[in-house]
Computed example of a mutant assay.
Amino acid sequence: MAQALLFSLIAAGLLVGALWAFRPGSGWYWRGQTQLEMTDRVRTEDAVKHIHLSNLRGLQPTLESLAGALQVTGNEAATVAQSLTQFGLAELRDGQLHLQPRGVEAALHIIRVHRLWEQHLAEGTSVSEGEWHAQADRIEHQLSPQEADKLAAQMGNPLRDPHGDPIPSHAGSLRPQDGLPLSSVAVNQSCRIVHIEDEPVAIFSQIVASGLQPEMELRVLENSARRVRVWADGCEHVLAPLLAANVAVRPVEVLAQEVAQRPLSDLEPGQASRVVSISHACRGLERRRLLDLGLLPGTMVYAELRSPSGDPTAYRIRDTLIALRRTQAQWVRVE
């Protein structure tokens, strides 16, 4: 009797477990299936994005390059390519992948969402620059075209992302990327940065750490096999040639009038100076806060007193006393 009861309890437990695992929509099995479908969809979307971006850069996408972009084996890349063909997104000819119109449309949507989200993070949040790309890589698979249009409208339909890349329009058009590598610019040539390549991430991080940003104007001081030195944002920047090759610039006739600059943080109590600019490296909420505090070009700033610990420092702007930490005051360039 006890044994029969035990068997009944085990059977009941197995039945409840099966119902729990296979219940429609939220059971373990169905969640696993949904995750599998999501993974397949993400790989498909990443694949069309890779093919389209390769074409834009003048490269020929192959199964090998697709495997590298998706971080999968060659066999898995071949499976993805076969799926693209079955869904009418791409075709494989002579060992090279070519997008069909549907594939181009899908790729442009993914690229549009990615770049819009990076612009949102740069201008509307305090998320660090090093996190923009990874977050956009996730969000690009989640927003619908309608949600992307709403996001774009909220930001005033920006034309470029924070790296200078053109953002595809609602209609699916994409302006060509212009500019030439900084590594090819002659000494004493004046330029404006139009784009900073955000991949590979390791190289992008080093460029960001150097302080260079899109829209900065610069003058080349040295261009050798060892290094590229430029004057930008009131100070000197040094890049390895490999890094400089990932910075696209457009020559300009003459730089805006060069004024000897220093960071506001260099002012000692009792000193005063006039604001020249806020560094292009200062973005989003932090930049908005400095502007709201009145740190506009031409404004006189007086360093009044400094904390006994050395940070923060109190500055007077138009009869208003404000406190800025050294890391904040370094963004403000003064004469």
Rank of each mutant, 00 (worst) to 15 (best):
D233A: 15
A248V: 01
V208D: 08
M155T: 08
T125Q: 05
G179M: 04
P312L: 03
E335K: 08
G172I: 04
A134H: 05
H195Y: 14
L53R: 12
E140N: 09
R318C: 12
F87A: 13
Q3E: 15
R287K: 12
S309M: 10
R160V: 12
P297M: 11
L53C: 11
Q330W: 00
A240L: 14
W331Y: 15
D46H: 01
D94E: 15
N75Q: 15
G310P: 04
Q142R: 09
V238A: 10
Q33P: 00
R333T: 02
L53S: 11
M216G: 01
R93Y: 09
V185T: 06
H120P: 03
N246S: 14
A134Y: 03
D178T: 13
A153E: 14
A67W: 01
Q328G: 04
L92W: 00
T299M: 10
L5G: 01
L89P: 03
Q71C: 06
I193S: 02
V275L: 09
T62P: 04
R43I: 02
M216P: 00
A2F: 08
T34Y: 04
V194S: 05
E236K: 11
P101D: 10
T125I: 07
L56E: 14
R262S: 13
A260L: 14
H98G: 01
N157L: 11
V334D: 04
A202H: 09
R326H: 11
A122W: 02
E236A: 14
S265C: 12
A47Q: 06
G294C: 05
V252K: 05
H120G: 02
R115Q: 10
A209P: 03
D292T: 08
G68M: 08
Q328M: 13
A78F: 08
S26F: 09
V72G: 12
L59G: 02
Q206M: 14
I139H: 05
L296C: 05
E105K: 11
V249S: 06
G294P: 03
A244F: 05
S8V: 04
L242H: 09
V16T: 13
N157G: 03
A18R: 08
V230L: 10
V80P: 02
V220S: 08
H114L: 06
G234I: 12
